[in-house]
């Protein structure tokens, strides 16, 4: 025999349906306002790719300079001068957000991936206490939307407290 489960009365069914459809329609209509168009069912909205490159802004002899961190890895000294090998992927586990110097597909579109990289660069910058050298982290993206020529996008973290 089936499990008893309360049935909604007729009026509540109509009210539930109106709320459900209203919320879903609102989420679909406002999807453009969210970088990843989440909850908006924009299937295969783009065919874009990104080529990310991680840079660190450090103190140079004549002021700040940017140095490449190949593959998202670098060595930096902590506050007492002990060197540490640091990896972006120790903090960011998603492959599509941690594959540097390689071409990756921008799932959910370039806009979504740019927003995620911006959040990630801020997150990594705030969670690498063993790096007392890096002033800011920079992600340089080469973005190719729907097969068009690449355009550069530069994402900079907030200045780090060292």
């Amino acid at each position: 025999m089936f499990d008893p489960f309360p049935e909604l009365p007729a009026r509540a069914r109509v009210a539930f349906a109106a709320c459900f459809v209203g919320v879903q329609a609102a989420l679909v209509l406002t999807a453009d306002r969210r970088p990843d168009a989440a909850f908006g069912f924009r299937m295969f909205s783009e065919s874009s790719e990104l080529e990310p490159r991680l840079l660190r802004e450090v103190d140079g002899p004549d002021g700040p300079v940017e140095v490449h961190a190949p593959g998202g890895e670098w060595v930096a000294k902590d506050a007492i001068g002990v060197p540490h090998r640091l990896k972006w992927s120790d903090r960011v586990h998603r492959k599509e957000l941690s594959a540097f110097d390689a071409v990756i597909h921008a799932s959910y579109g370039a806009k979504a991936q740019i927003a995620r990289f911006q959040a990630a660069v801020d997150d990594v910058a705030a969670h690498t206490p063993d790096d007392a050298e890096t002033r800011r982290l920079v992600v340089e993206l080469t973005v190719r939307r729907n097969g068009r020529p690449g355009e550069k996008v530069r994402l900079v973290s907030a200045p780090r407290r060292r």
């Binding site: 168009a37 069912f41 295969f44 909205s45 065919s47």
Partner: peptide, 18 residues
């Protein structure tokens, strides 16, 4: 509707670029 409508309003999709 959401998926087809958004593609319809997108030039790149309509023209086959995507």
């Amino acid at each position: 509707v959401a998926s087809g409508g958004s593609k319809l309003l997108d030039d790149d999709w309509r023209n086959g670029l995507v």
